[in-house]
């Protein structure tokens, strides 16, 4: 004598087929949760230069983004290069401790170094003492 529960067995079969899918989706979810870092999106898409520097990125009072074609964004707002000094000075005056004011410059790897030098000169002229250049860790190439 065979006892058949037609409704339950069909549903179970469907659920059984979904178990490998759920396994993979869960694995992907765990991977992205652990390996990824959630950060706010930036105005400019930047491919930072690679470096052997091992200093972890610290908190900064202001962030200056420089794209490969020289476009500037200061604290996630578009600015023109001639208003950079003004924006920097305004940001310094708003901060409590001028001496401890830290600026992070995020530049694209293919930005002409001359333009970077000019920007650093402007940053210096604005009176900022602590400037950091954002880099990313170098991955070993197998040529």
């Amino acid at each position: 004598m065979i006892v058949v529960s037609s409704h339950t067995s069909r549903k179970n079969q469907l659920d059984d087929n979904m178990i490998p899918l759920i396994n993979i989706v869960f694995l992907m979810l765990i991977f992205f949760m652990i390996a990824g870092q959630i950060s706010s999106s930036e105005l400019l898409k930047i491919q930072p230069p690679t470096s052997e520097q091992r200093l972890a990125l610290e908190e900064h009072d202001a962030i200056l983004l420089v794209s490969e074609d020289g476009k500037l964004a200061f604290n996630n707002q578009w600015i023109k290069s001639d208003t950079l000094t003004e924006s920097l000075q305004q940001s310094i005056t708003e901060s409590k401790d001028v001496q401890a004011f830290k600026l992070l410059v995020k530049t694209d790897a293919i930005l002409p170094a001359n333009e970077l030098m000019d920007l650093l000169q402007q940053v210096r002229a604005a009176g900022i003492l602590k400037v950091s250049l954002a880099t990313q860790t170098k991955t070993k190439r197998h040529d």
């Binding site: 930072p48 091992r54 610290e58 950091s132």
Partner: peptide, 27 residues
């Protein structure tokens, strides 16, 4: 599965894998 997929999409889109470092430049 609906919830897990939504979570997966969120983490896939919002996660970044760039390991940021800094090079200090002082006056």
């Amino acid at each position: 599965i609906d919830v897990v997929f939504i979570l997966l999409l969120f983490f896939m889109l919002s996660s970044g894998f760039t390991q940021w470092r800094q090079m200090d430049i002082t006056a």
